[in-house]
């Protein structure tokens, strides 16, 4: 049950990108020379890959337990 909630939370997490888009839509602030909107988007692309990796690892673990 706990794993299930965690999984759902992980799946929904990237949607904060969509929800926050109007707020983070600024180019003046920059991170490592990259305007914030662009940095934020690039960051999320990498973060989502990490989230999917975690989801997959949970999957493998549950598979071993025979769930």
């Amino acid at each position: 049950m706990k794993a299930r909630k965690l999984r759902l939370a992980l799946i929904l997490m990237p949607y904060t990108f969509i929800a926050l888009l109007p707020v983070i839509n600024v180019a003046r602030i920059s991170v490592f020379g990259i305007p914030f909107l662009w940095f934020w988007s690039f960051l999320w692309v990498v973060l989502i890959t990490i989230i999917i990796t975690i989801l997959y690892l949970i999957e493998i673990r549950e598979g071993r337990k025979g769930v």
Binding site: R7, I11, P14, Y15, F17, I18, N25, L37, W38, S41, W44, V45, I48, T49, I51, I52, L55, E59
Partner: peptide
């Protein structure tokens, strides 16, 4: 311009949806 970022991100959202 920046509209491309929506295209960039939707692909990743698709892969996460695969789990759902």
């Amino acid at each position: 311009g920046a509209k491309v970022l929506a295209i960039l991100v939707y692909g990743q959202l698709s892969y996460i949806l695969a789990y759902l």
